Amino acid sequence: MTYCVGLKLDRGLMFMSDTRTNAGVDNVSSVRKMYSWEKPGDRLITLLSAGNLATTQTVVSILEEHMKPVDDRSPSIMDTPSMFATAQLVGETVREVIKTASDGGLQSEAAFSATFILGGQVAGGDTRMFLIYPEGNFIEATQDNPFFQIGEHKYGKPILVRAFHKDMSFEEATKLLLVSFDSTLTSNLSVGFPLDMQVYRRDALARGFEKRFLPDDSYYRRISEGWSDALRVAFETLPDFEMN
């Protein structure tokens, strides 16, 4: 299983993903689920993936193959004129990969399902973020829907819904993401460390701050323990139910 989040802030974009993948309790490993491509001064594109690992890795591999000069596919994601066109290209690639994988007839398309969060900026346009479905279609983050989650999202969503605001700083957003991931890690063993985080500052058109959080990271431990303590204190201050 997976948990990935993309936030659309006034200041730019933030991404976080776990790295756990498993095919049973005795076959657990770590695989990166965040991919970024940049052409400084022209674009920064980040992709988060969830779903069938073979599908997600094939999609990324095809996107990277088409960036090579010897490939005749045009445009690649490094040449698309906008983030919308980039989302269309990724969506087409997802659809093609799933259709090809399922054409054998032994399994349904659902067995090869994969979902992606795509975000970034192309010169001349604004920061944009999209949720791309296995069918290849997509929706865009808006003022009313300013963040996307994929994978095991139910445990971390209440934190985001209650605390997210679009004008928060990157530092506040980091704290929010870690609380959301901590709630998910505590509730579901199929989501696990390391956690990858990336910041994209609006109009930078280049990579921003990046960090990989390990289980013993001192800041993560402070957030995890502090959140548990704060919940206990908040619970104790609530009025008791009166059984009269």
Rank of each mutant, 00 (worst) to 15 (best):
M83E: 02
A101H: 06
Q107A: 03
Q88G: 09
L106R: 09
Q88C: 12
S102T: 00
P75M: 12
V94P: 04
M78N: 07
R95M: 08
E96S: 14
V90Y: 14
R73T: 12
A101I: 05
R73G: 08
D103F: 07
Q88M: 14
A101V: 01
V97M: 10
A85P: 09
T100Q: 02
G104A: 08
D103A: 12
K99D: 07
E109S: 08
G104T: 10
V90P: 03
E96N: 12
S74A: 11
M78Q: 12
A85L: 06
E96H: 14
F84C: 01
D103I: 10
S76H: 09
E92V: 01
R73C: 05
L106V: 00
A85D: 15
Q107F: 15
L106W: 02
I77R: 02
S76P: 08
P75W: 15
A87R: 10
Q107P: 01
S76L: 12
M78P: 01
S102M: 02
G105T: 07
T86I: 07
A101D: 08
T100F: 11
V90L: 10
F84D: 10
S108A: 02
D79V: 07
G91M: 09
T100V: 01
T93H: 03
I77Y: 12
V97A: 02
K99Q: 06
G104S: 07
G104E: 06
T100P: 03
P81K: 10
R73V: 14
G91Y: 08
M78W: 10
E109V: 00
A87C: 13
E92L: 12
A85Q: 13
Q107I: 03
I98E: 03
G104W: 09
G91H: 02
M78F: 03
R73D: 12
G105F: 13
F84S: 05
S108L: 06
S108F: 10
R73K: 14
G104V: 00
I98N: 01
A87T: 03
F84E: 15
A101N: 05
T86M: 11
P81M: 04
G91T: 00
R73L: 13
V94M: 05
Q88E: 09
V94F: 05
S108T: 01
I98G: 05
I77A: 01
